[in-house]
């Protein structure tokens, strides 16, 4: 009996989730906003990934005097220590991107697991999970990350964990609200009566019905991950100093804003294009998936977060 359900759950539902993702995404990229967002994101991701292979100099080598204006040899000029700005820009994005992606995936997974569990198990588990979420939410996200960094030093895994833990309670709230509705539906009750274990019910019956809010949350969290990661790097809590990073570059070169603004403008522009890209794309996803023309993206968060 259970074996039968297990196979049906895996064979039928897993492709169904994938189908849903695809169906929504293919509609999103056909909207103007979706296409614009995707294009912006793709350009920056391409620069970040392919960039290191095209950097003309070593990103850490001191090649000329500090804050030289752009020239034929140094296309974007040099930075505060006399390193080639172009090389640093090309190599300074991929780690930031990877860390933001890792924090998003981790945060959404923890948050979704917590939110679904709270909604489905209810009772004491619900209270415990949501109270912990409240406590975590009382820390502004960047402040929480700073607290963790102050304890164990600016280690990269710790920063990823800190950002992910900052996302989790917000995701949990949204997903809990959505899962509460799903868990009351008759087919979930039907499966329960058949004796399917709770974990299975949550994974195979409830999760597939949360694809749309999860997509919107993931997009929103990705934007925030990049913002917080870059912000931490900007404050000096990211990669160790000689390594290039767009956030650090903006901070270390802003004293030379008048001599060579490009050392600040180009990394700032790349970060901006990236976050605007992901935000626009998420907005398109929300419009397509939820079908709310007038409801702004953050409203879903606001509504879910504003209650109890």
């Amino acid at each position: 009996m259970t074996a039968e359900i297990r196979t049906s759950a895996e064979d039928v539902l897993a492709p169904k989730i994938r189908g849903q993702w695809r169906a929504i995404l293919s509609r999103v990229v056909r909207t103007k906003r979706g296409a614009t967002g995707l294009a912006l994101t793709a350009v920056v991701v391409l620069v970040a990934i392919v960039g290191p292979f095209f950097s003309p100099y070593s990103p850490t080598a001191l090649v000329a005097l500090p804050f030289q204006r752009p020239s034929a040899t140094y296309l974007l000029g040099t930075d505060a220590l006399g390193r080639d700005v172009l090389s640093r820009v090309l190599s300074g994005g991929w780690l930031l991107l990877c860390m933001a992606l890792a924090a998003t995936i981790l945060g959404v997974c923890i948050g979704a697991a917590a939110g679904i569990s709270a909604a489905y198990i209810k009772g004491r588990a619900d209270g415990l999970i949501m109270r912990s979420a409240d406590v975590l939410l009382a820390f502004p996200q960047l402040v929480f990350a700073l607290l963790l960094v102050s304890i164990a030093g600016p280690k990269l895994w710790l920063i990823v964990l800190a950002v992910a833990l900052g996302h989790a309670p917000q995701v949990a709230r949204v997903i809990r609200a959505a899962a509460l509705d799903v868990s009351e539906r008759p087919y979930v009750r039907a499966v329960e009566i058949q004796g399917v274990p709770r974990r299975k019910v949550m994974y195979s019956e409830i999760l597939p019905n949360l694809v749309t809010p999860l997509m919107v949350e993931a997009g929103l969290r990705m934007t925030y991950s990049i913002v917080v990661m870059a912000g931490l790097a900007f404050l000096g809590f990211g990669q160790a100093p000689p390594d290039p990073n767009w956030g650090i570059m903006i901070n270390e070169n802003r004293v030379g804003l008048q001599s060579n603004p490009w050392a600040v403008v180009v990394p700032a522009l790349l970060i901006s294009l990236l976050t605007i890209g992901t935000n626009t794309f998420t907005d398109a996803v929300a419009r397509v998936a939820i079908g709310v023309e007038r409801q702004p993206v953050e409203l879903t968060t606001v509504v879910a977060g504003g209650q109890e």
Binding site: T223, I226, V227, A230, G231, F234, G247, I250, N251, R254, L257, Q258, P261, V264, V265, A268, I271, S272, T275, I276, T278, N279, T280, D283, E298
Partner: peptide
């Protein structure tokens, strides 16, 4: 608003500095 809500604070700040203070 779509653009502004996406931008990190420090990018907005640097943009304002560039525009109204230094360059």
């Amino acid at each position: 608003s779509l653009a502004l809500t996406a931008l990190p604070e420090f990018v907005i700040a640097i943009g304002l500095v560039l525009l109204f203070a230094t360059n």
